[in-house]
Design a protein around this nucleic acid. Structure first.
Lengths: 300, 300
DNA sequence: TCAATGTATTTAATAATTAAATGCTACATG
DNA sequence: CATGTAGCATTTAATTATTAAATACATTGA
């Protein structure tokens, strides 16, 4: 009927474990210190002490707190399963949208999403509020939310935004010092490209992973909290769409390999302008592919 | 104790007004049609019809709904004041943060904010969840939120991000067709710059507004949902910091006028490269100013 | 037959409830 | 008597419960 007491339960077990490290009859530290040990407020600590005294583990009279007997396994209190995988909600949500091709303008029910993702409703509300900042969802006047994404307009603007960020990243790479880790990464990635090109006929499916590694490496040079959030969403969307658009996959991947190599060539020559041009060509291709994949799914 | 019935109350008054347009004894449209008129579901419409029947305005027996008498002013129902200014919450929140120099790592209490901004708590939670996507706030492990912004690191990354977006915008302007409205705007803005320069000694405070107009015009060329959100936040933060950092304001503004004019010159000459260079110079100055203003407020 | 109403179910906004944090006062102890 | 500690009171926030509203389904009547 109200908030859970998981915090108390976890703190209690932690304090109990701490008691095990003490000798019998030892003085127990002050409430404030115990609070620091368990990472909770004094309010919670006092609840813990109450229970410890009740079970006869300690004697508690004001400042006089002493260990009466060693804690036993049955003194521990049950903690109700962390369960909810709130952590990777974003990943799972985008995965769901893209995997099931949830069409634009679909009404999103918090109650339903809460069930399918096994996450409390209020967390979902917060999550959706966050996504609305990216223009992926929007509040409906009649209540609830609406999925906006993955129209043609969305794809175009997403691609454009990606281009802006990635061209900047490429410029940054070109100016990175020789001892920057990106150079080693790019060298390895170049080799892998060359190798894949040699076995293209059989292994062309492998390109998707390589593509992600390449863009990841380039973008890793930019250290900016504003871009990092976007890159996560962007790379997910492009990644999935490439995986599903199977038309001419081999030719497309072969072309992309050459484009990647052109970018790496220019970067290693420290020719920023050439690198930008090569990157621009590559990103234009990506945009076209994304758009045609949308057309295929009849979402244009 | 539960959600408000404002929706019903507004719908009721709207239906009442609709009844006034009907002749006496006229048939009233179907529930579905009334729902379309008032923009609500049939559930709400049936509540409205119940009340109308109770007051004797209509007679309602299944499908037979007729107007018994003309509605009177006292038939209307009170609507409980829209009140909450949820609309400009973002503006007011950032204004508050910047005006009172709320230091980084301040704990934000939803209850308190809810009072000071006169907005329901759950709306504030959603709002903060949105801001967390921009890295402005963060959840605290012990509950609630923490203001992150306005450290040196934040200012640097914000400036860098602004630079990325704005350099792109400048490139776009340079390629805009001659009949694009931006050219007329820029011409006017150039005149205003020249005029202000002539009366700089007395009117230098006017520059702040001019600065906002200039950047607004340049960015207006880019139509992208992802950049629009950011620009709002960015321009607010820069705007306020400029207003408050009074050191050498006149000199700073005079220099900025020249920098703006240089950008406009290059743009009107359709020299994209020169425009980008000029913009880069200007944005570097801005970044320095923002950082020194932070140092002044001891937030570094 | 089909559009309208009647009824049931589901969803979402929001207050109520309880856990937990925070703040203040009084006290004990060196 | 200063400082840290416990006791007590207040405030805040997570989470449930409640009610308004939307939606889905069944029934009816022209």
């Amino acid at each position: 009927m109200a908030r859970s007491d998981t915090r108390y339960r976890e703190a209690y077990n932690r304090i109990l474990a701490y008691c095990e490290t003490l000798p019998l009859d030892a003085q127990i530290p002050s409430e404030t210190q115990l609070g620091d040990i368990a990472g909770v407020s004094r309010t919670v600590i006092r609840r813990c002490l109450s229970r410890l005294a009740e079970l006869g583990v300690i004697v508690w009279n004001g400042r006089d707190k002493r260990l009466l007997r060693m804690p036993r396994p049955e003194d521990r209190i049950a903690v109700p399963e962390a369960g909810s995988h709130s952590a990777d909600l974003e990943q799972r949500f985008l995965d769901w949208v893209l995997r099931f091709d949830v069409p634009a303008n679909t009404a999103l029910s918090v109650a339903e999403l809460s069930r399918t993702f096994d996450v409390p409703q209020h967390e979902l509300k917060e999550f959706l509020a966050g996504l609305s900042r990216f223009g992926l969802v929007q509040r409906r006047p009649e209540g609830g939310w609406r999925l906006l994404g993955f129209t043609k307009g969305f794809a175009i603007e997403l691609s454009d935004f990606r281009t802006i960020l990635e061209l900047h990243a490429v410029s940054q790479v070109a100016e990175a010092p020789v001892d920057h880790p990106v150079w080693a990464q790019l060298a390895k990635i170049r080799d892998d490209h060359v190798q894949l090109r040699a076995h293209m006929d059989s292994d062309f499916h492998e390109f998707s992973k390589l593509d992600e590694r390449f863009h990841q490496a380039v973008n890793s040079v930019v250290r900016n909290r504003f871009t990092v959030e976007f890159q996560k969403v962007i790379s997910l969307i492009f990644h999935y769409h490439y995986m599903w658009d199977k038309t001419e996959e081999k030719d497309r991947n072969a072309a992309a390999i050459e484009e990647h190599l052109a970018i790496i060539d220019a970067l290693e020559a420290r020719d920023a302008a050439a690198a930008r041009n090569a990157a621009q060509r590559h990103l234009r291709t990506s945009k076209t592919t994304l758009l045609s994949s949308l057309r295929q799914h009849d979402l244009g």
